[in-house]
Structure formats: structure tokens, C-alpha cells
Simulated assay, not measured.
Amino acid sequence: MQCFVYASQRKHGSYLWLARRDAFDVLPESLVLLLGELRFVMEVSLDEERKLPIEDTEQVLEHLRTQGWHLQLPPNETLATANHLAYTHSPQGERGE
């Protein structure tokens, strides 16, 4: 499967994998807000035999097939932590809304 990897300009060490190039329309709005501007990094041919250094290849492929995207966060960070940090550093979070 061809996939396309983008680096978050806002969230250092976070990468977004897409099943189609520039298919940002499949992303939830909350994810778009969390990641901010994205920079294209590379195109990758991915299959079950290819080993990835950080991510589980099968999980990446499953996410790409079922939802069209996969989020790669820095090691030891969960999506809940990332969302919390994004919320507390946003203008909305600072107002306590």
C-alpha cells in the first residue's frame, strides 16, 4: 500500500500517515487542530513484511484501510496526553471554556 507521511509543524515528533496524498478531508477536526500545519515528509510503500522503527506495521495498515489515516505520536505519549496538552495551550483552554 502506498502511503504518505506528514510531519506536524505544531506538535514536534508527531507524524500523520495518510492512505491518499493530501486527503486531509478524512481527518477529525480535533486532530487537525491538534497537529496544526502539516509538512509532507515522504511517500512509503508499506506492507505486512516491512518493519517500521517505532510503529506497529499491522496497526498502521489497519488504520489506513479503515479510517484513511494513522497518527504517530512521540514515544511515551498517548493521544489523551496530546489532546490535553493541546487543549491547555489553546486560547479556548486558557479561558477555561
Rank of each mutant, 00 (worst) to 15 (best):
E43M: 07
G93A: 12
W17D: 02
R39K: 09
Q2K: 10
R21C: 05
S45I: 03
E55T: 05
R21S: 14
L79N: 01
L61P: 04
L79P: 07
A82C: 08
P75H: 11
Q67N: 00
Q67Y: 10
T81P: 00
V32Q: 13
V60T: 11
Q2L: 09
E97I: 15
G13N: 04
A23E: 15
H89Y: 11
V5K: 02
L38W: 00
A82K: 06
A23F: 15
P75M: 03
R50L: 14
L34D: 04
A82I: 04
H70L: 01
M42Y: 08
K51H: 02
S90Y: 12
E43H: 06
V60R: 05
L31H: 09
P91G: 06
E43L: 05
L34E: 10
L46N: 00
H89S: 14
P91W: 00
R50A: 04
R10V: 04
E77M: 09
V60Y: 04
E37P: 01
Y6H: 03
D22S: 10
E58Q: 15
F24C: 08
F40Q: 10
R39L: 01
P28W: 13
R65T: 09
M42Q: 15
R10F: 10
A82M: 06
C3D: 06
W17L: 05
H12C: 12
T78Q: 09
D47C: 01
H89P: 08
L85N: 12
H12A: 15
R21V: 08
V41P: 06
L61H: 01
Q59H: 09
S45V: 04
L16R: 00
L85Y: 06
E77P: 10
Q9C: 07
L71R: 10
L35R: 07
K11V: 11
S45C: 03
E97F: 11
L33K: 11
R10Q: 08
L27Y: 08
L31F: 02
Q9A: 14
V44W: 03
G36F: 07
T66L: 13
T78V: 00
G96H: 03
T66E: 15
L79Y: 11
V26D: 05
R95E: 10
E49M: 11
S8W: 06
A80S: 13
N76D: 15
R65D: 14
E55F: 01
S8F: 00
L73R: 11
L71H: 12
Q92N: 06
K11Q: 13
S45A: 06
R21W: 09
Q67G: 03
P91N: 01
Q92T: 14
Q67D: 05
R50V: 15
I54M: 12
Q67W: 02
R95V: 01
L85F: 07
A86C: 09
P74M: 15
R95D: 00
T57F: 05
L46P: 07
M42A: 14
S30C: 00
L34T: 12
